[in-house]
Nucleic acid binder design. Structure first.
Lengths: 150, 150
DNA sequence: ACCTATTCCCCCACTTCTTCCCACTATCTT
DNA sequence: AAGATAGTGGGAAGAAGTGGGGGAATAGGT
């Protein structure tokens, strides 16, 4: 299913000001539209989806089995934290207090485009995560190559 | 799969200027078009793809689930590291700060054509890598010969 | 229901980085 | 030797990110 030609990619460091405003990178704005959904993400970051994309993602989550306690928990984790936020005239969003706390955000924030979502990270957490991943990347590529995914 | 008649081949040393601009070898330009994607590569270099080629790669990555920690990490590594850059009137691209840092680039940079992509290396890292590989090449050939790959 | 206090949003100003354009040099060609 | 072409460098206009003030809206308490 192809929605748009562009996907969200790239890494940008922006700052969260005292009013909890966060400006989005210019490159993301057209793709994101004027309203987004922000939610708790995995690995201690936030996920931000364009509205169109969010609907697909929410649907996928709903299709996960209700019977299992762990997927039920996973659902709650993602869905209960979701907020619809609109983008102001300067291309900024307002990050709710509880999400800011969840991701441990302070002034320095990293916005990372990953396919159909943007991830919002505390800068320090991000760099730590990245160095950890970089070490594994070569081995990972090899493994994916073996199963023919790449 | 070859789409065009030319493959990207050859090795060139160019310089990254103070504005993080990098001119592409003339030989690559027609093949690359006027827009490319640059991303984190393996072995500490950067990969540069023509748009057409990138789309294939990106599609493969889409199939990796974000529910698993390792593929999630690999996705972040590649996708958040990717940038769509266009080539200016002088045939140069702009290398983002974080990619420059990742590959440890300074002024001397090597551009190496590898089939359907161009790799961008710190010159020193490149020469070191090459000498290391050359030593292994004989042994490698033997191994590949044994399993009938060559 | 009213007043107060806080949050939020729009607008404007400032600063820094990017982008575009032009110019210089070196090398290769004719 | 002159001309062309590739690679490199720098200056100036423009845009993107950031920060703050004031008015509107919302919530909360009495």
């Amino acid at each position: 299913m192809l929605h748009k030609t562009n996907m969200l990619i790239g890494e940008y460091t922006h700052s969260l000001d005292t009013k909890k405003r966060l400006s989005l990178p210019k490159k993301f704005r057209t793709e994101l539209g004027k309203k987004v959904v922000v939610t708790r993400g995995l690995d201690n970051c936030l996920f931000m989806y364009p509205m169109s994309q969010w609907k697909d993602t929410a649907k996928k989550l709903q299709n996960l089995s209700f019977a299992q306690a762990d997927t039920r928990g996973f659902n709650r984790f993602i869905l209960s934290g979701a907020v619809e936020v609109d983008i102001d005239s300067a291309g900024r969003i307002l990050v709710p207090e509880y999400l800011k706390n969840f991701a441990g955000l302070n002034t320095k924030v990293v916005l990372a485009g990953v396919q159909d979502r943007v991830e919002i990270w505390n800068e320090k957490t991000w760099t730590e995560y990245k160095t950890r991943i970089e070490k594994q990347a070569d081995a990972m590529a090899e493994k994916l190559g073996e199963i023919g995914a790449l």
